[in-house]
Design a protein around this nucleic acid. Structure first.
Length: 670
RNA sequence: GGCGGCGUAGCUCAGUUGGUUAGAGCAUCGGAAUCAUAAUCCGAGUGUCCGGGGUUCAAGUCCCUGCGCCGCUACCA
């Protein structure tokens, strides 16, 4: 039997998990793995926390603790969320572990030795106060071409020219404001262009990949692959294994996917068979399947395969990369910074993890973005699970207990209907298994709940509460068939809500160890044991609380970042005036810019404003707005902008400031 | 602006390689039933399949175009 490795993108260990993570990468993988295990597949499911990188070290610094402490905190936190959701990895590791460092270094060295990594030397600005090298955009100074101040190290906004940060006049660190030191440094680059043909050939064999994945990759290949730096000058990460590279680490995106392998190695050791990982990773027939969100596609379909291609061991390449789209929340994009999200740990305080599994699986962003609506969550749980499935179980069990002591035998004189039902359900199994195998969990769930719906209909139509008094065999037949449906559901829905399906089987005294093949087993009798309602309903007030909580938490922007205090002098240097907009035009080839012609009381100026996403040109004409007048002119898209419009921004949307009453054009603002 | 995606019933969506009267769930309305967590079952719908044009015997499906929304990206904030 072919082996399968399933991975979920490594969660970054600088914060807890939210429902978007679960819907995109973890739940679909867990369901797939559980289904494959029911099929008897030889499959392992690995992941781990991604524990390196600047955000973690910066967070640690700001809390006055070590990066390791941050990582340990969130590794634990994330693991607990997974546990609460029954997402069962065979191994869940972390990239700060020695095993991972070792193999990541080997990956680097192999690529270097084979000529796919090259070193590039150069000087780079270094912030002496923070002891770190500064990326170009973190250095500011006077533009060497046009002499304007405030030019970034990569490009001057004033004249638009690309500049070399080393030529900046009077450079300053944007992090500390200190004068940076010029230091010699070197970086290593992964030469992706060299992989172009090999990647194209390999990708051309991938006929069954999702369209969204293929489109994404083709875009990259069309633009041409670019070499990418794989080292960084920070102190938290996998050290670059070269003497000359002291103080440098591998870039996180380079070492993170290697975590899939190191996690498997860790797993092999844990089960006391340290070489076992090779049987998966080095067997060309192994199907390597990466579950992830769409933002991760290029790493897993271009960079990661390239890395695997040139190793001393023949690693298997990804067989499939079922990328999911995004989960929105109440119609809006999720955002952790605005706190517009639902954290898994919070969810689990009030609701069963099975409910989240069910709802997210039934509304998974499989082929396009989908939405999490609290109200819809409640509806779907109460209808599908409590009313349709839960009620079917409950009515059947209670009825059987009331009249038959819970024991229902399969009688030889059941009608033809019994055979028909078995036939019908048998036909349903094929599309259900196909759906699971092609990652169409929404479809699988729909088909399974339909079985429960059919059960209720059948129960109603055969009226066992009547036949039990007139024709006992008929009543038994109804119950037997309904129980059989429940038995089949307990298997087919198991990958989605394993805990509830296990409870269902216990109530029916069915074996808790089972496989997909058991679907076709014919039970001679059912003996119902102790029962309880399978699902409790989600009450209105809980949902209302969540909606209120979400809305208030997102408004509470306690973490405002303030700028440094300024003097009145500083303020008085700025000349703000109300201007009247005479003319407004779209700037060709620009998505966000409008060219405004404004009157500031006799003087006419041209202003380029980045407001086109929020305002049409027509809507601006005649408007009075606030502007900063004495800002140094800037050349934007070939037009000199001679003032700056003031606008409030909330997320992506902008709102220009207008005076409360009509005032003469040019009125000063103070 | 470039690339990609999306636009189907009040809501969330499904519609396989173009093929009969365009479907499901939820919500709404009417009815039945009483074994069951007032759960269930039956019935009723409603659609300019975003607009316009084209290819075809036949278009929700393919092509062109317009509009709207989303993502990446550029200019920018």
């Amino acid at each position: 039997m072919d082996k399968i490795i399933v991975t979920s993108a490594l969660p970054y260990a600088n914060g807890p998990l939210h429902i978007g993570h679960i819907a995109g990468a973890y739940l679909p993988a867990d369901i797939y793995v559980r289904f494959q295990k029911l099929l008897g597949a030889d499959i392992i499911f690995v992941s781990g926390t991604d524990e390196h990188g600047a955000p973690i070290s910066i967070k640690a610094e700001s809390e006055g603790i070590t990066p390791k402490e941050i990582v340990d905190r969130y590794h634990k936190n994330i693991s607990e969320s997974f546990k609460g959701l029954e997402i069962d990895f065979d191994n869940f590791s972390g990239t700060a572990r020695p095993e991972h460092h070792e193999i990541s270094q080997r990956f680097f060295l192999n690529l270097l030795k084979r000529g796919f990594v090259s070193k590039k030397e150069g000087k780079q600005w270094y912030d002496p106060k923070h002891n770190r090298f500064l990326a170009d955009r973190y250095v500011e100074g006077i533009c060497p071409f046009c002499g304007s101040p405030g030019a970034r190290g990569d490009q001057c906004d004033s004249c638009g020219k690309l500049i070399d940060s080393l030529n900046l006049i009077e450079p300053r660190s944007k992090i500390s404001g200190e004068i940076p030191i010029l230091k010699e440094t070197a970086h290593w680059y992964l030469e992706l262009p060299k992989f172009t043909d090999e990647l194209k050939n390999w990708l051309s064999t991938k006929k069954n990949w999702k369209d969204n994945v293929i489109n994404f990759i083709m875009g990259w290949l069309k633009d041409g692959l670019k070499e990418r730096a794989i080292t960084r000058d920070i102190d938290w990460g996998v050290p670059v294994p070269l003497k000359e590279a002291e103080g440098k680490v591998l870039y996180v995106w380079f070492d993170a996917p290697i975590g899939y392998i190191s996690s498997t190695i860790e797993w092999a050791k844990k089960i006391g068979d340290p070489e076992r990982w090779k049987k998966y990773w080095l067997d060309p027939k192994t199907r390597l399947i990466h579950f992830l969100g769409k933002d991760n596609i290029p790493f897993h379909t271009i960079i990661w395969p390239a890395m695997l291609m040139e190793q001393e061991l023949d690693y298997v390449l990804p067989d499939d990369v079922p990328a999911n789209e995004y989960l929105n929340l109440e119609g809006q994009k999720m955002s952790t910074s605005r706190n517009w999200t639902v954290w898994v740990e919070d969810f689990l305080k009030n609701f069963s993890g099975e409910y989240l599994r069910y709802y997210l699986a039934a509304n998974a962003p499989e082929s396009k973005d989908s939405d999490f609506y609290w109200k819809e969550f409640q509806n779907q749980i109460n209808n599908d699970l409590a009313n349709v499935l839960g009620n079917l179980a409950n009515r059947v069990f209670l009825f059987a207990k009331k009249y038959f002591d819970g024991r229902i035998d399969k009688e030889s004189d059941f009608s033809d209907q019994t055979a028909e039902i078995i036939q019908r359900i048998g036909n349903d199994i094929i599309p259900i298994t196909e759906a699971y195998q092609t990652y169409q969990v929404r479809k699988a769930i729909g088909l399974i709940i339909d079985i429960a719906r059919f059960g209720n209909k059948y129960f109603d139509e055969t009226k066992p509460w009547v036949t039990v008094k007139t024709d006992v065999i008929k009543a038994k037949e109804t119950l037997y068939n309904c129980m059989n449906l429940l038995r089949i559901i307990s298997i087919t829905l198991f990958p989605v809500i394993p805990g509830s399906m296990r409870r269902l089987r216990k109530m029916m005294n069915l074996n808790v160890e089972f496989s997909l093949k058991d679907i076709s087993v014919t039970e001679d009798y059912f003996q119902i044991g102790e029962t309880e309602p399978l699902f409790s309903k989600v009450e209105d007030n809980l949902i209302e609380n969540e909606i209120v909580k979400l809305k208030s938490a997102s408004i509470d922007q306690s973490g405002l970042e303030h700028k440094a205090e300024i003097s009145y002098d500083d303020f008085s240097k700025m000349e703000f005036r109300v201007v009247k907009i005479l003319k407004a035009d779209k700037i060709p080839k620009s998505g966000k810019l409008l060219k405004l012609t404004v009157d500031l009381g006799g003087e006419i100026r041209t202003v380029v404003a980045g407001i086109a996403k929020s305002y049409s040109p027509e809507s601006m004409i005649g408007k009075q707005v606030a502007m900063l007048i004495n800002l140094q002119p800037r050349n934007v898209m070939g037009i000199e902008s001679q003032a700056m419009i003031l606008a409030a921004h909330h997320g992506e949307s902008l709102s220009v400031l207008v005076p409360d009453n009509e005032v003469p054009a040019g009125s000063e603002i103070s």
